[in-house]
Design a protein around this nucleic acid. Structure first.
Length: 260
DNA sequence: ATGGTTGTTGCACAA
């Protein structure tokens, strides 16, 4: 099963490129972030025409997450699990896809370490851990994929010296990500690639993509059973090229069915 | 230190 995550930075602006990419790459599951669409504006019919069932949790203008699947899509749930303080924004949606509990997540940016949005980011990450504890067991097939707005390690940014005092690399948010992984999830990208300088997001400004100035902030976290079946992962940098790209590239994970 | 770009909506803000 090919599982992908992509922050599309407005599905309205990006629909043609997303359609082209789906037809070319053919992932079985795609987690989408930043649809920037109201709940009822999601192009379900266009996705259906490409063979994908879809679930959207949107709020319009900002945020908005979705899951596409061509291996079944059931038990769809927006927001955090019952009993956890619901998020006022549309940043997580979950569904069963091909036997895997898949969540598409758009972690708050944080904006600045002294901004209230940063406290919101940390709270959101703590609630994601609580959500996993409530909804899943570490022994389940679980994938949590999306834009985490956190570079897990210094090798995940182009120049750590330029990130001092910034969000995305601070200790507390990296610790919060570790706490999420300690549920029993693994940053699958690092199972296959050790190199620094491998990114999933590049600022639109200053030719950052072509200059190699980016960050790896889009992650596919997987439980042990899924991670151990995975055979390949990649960032599709081609999707960051050409006309009207998102500022994020898709991240892909290939998972075997366990019969190999 | 600043600016640079894109998307949404508005006459900025978020990223």
């Amino acid at each position: 099963m090919l599982i992908a995550t992509w922050n599309v930075n407005s599905l309205k602006a990006r629909l043609p490129r997303v359609q082209e990419w789906l037809a070319e790459v053919g992932p079985d599951v795609l987690c989408i972030q930043e649809t920037k669409l109201a709940q009822d504006k999601f192009p379900h019919a266009a996705m259906d025409a490409l063979g994908y069932e879809s679930v959207h949790f949107g709020q319009g203008q900002w945020n908005g997450v979705a899951i596409l699947s061509r291996v079944g899509l059931g038990d769809a749930r927006p927001n955090f699990a019952p009993g956890i303080e619901p998020d006022a924004e549309a940043r997580i949606v979950s569904a069963m896809c091909g036997g895997i509990r898949v969540s598409s997540v758009y972690v708050p940016n944080g904006r600045a370490l002294d901004h209230e949005h940063y406290a919101y980011k940390l709270s959101w990450l703590a609630r994601l851990r609580a959500h996993l504890d409530a909804e899943c067991s570490p022994g389940d097939d679980v994938v949590v994929a999306g834009d985490f707005n956190i570079a897990p390690e210094d090798r995940d940014v182009w120049d750590i010296s330029k990130m001092e005092g910034s969000t995305h690399v601070s200790g507390p948010e990296r610790d919060a990500l570790s706490t999420i992984c300690q549920f029993g999830l693994e940053d699958t990208f690092r199972r296959f690639h050790d190199d620094a300088g491998l990114f999933s997001w590049w600022d639109y400004r200053g030719g950052d993509f072509h200059q190699g100035r980016g960050m790896r902030i889009d992650l596919v976290l997987a439980s042990r059973s899924v991670a151990e079946r995975s055979t390949w992962t990649s960032v599709d940098r081609n999707a960051r090229k050409g006309q009207q790209p998102s500022d994020h590239a898709p991240v892909l994970l290939l998972v075997g069915d366990g019969t190999e």
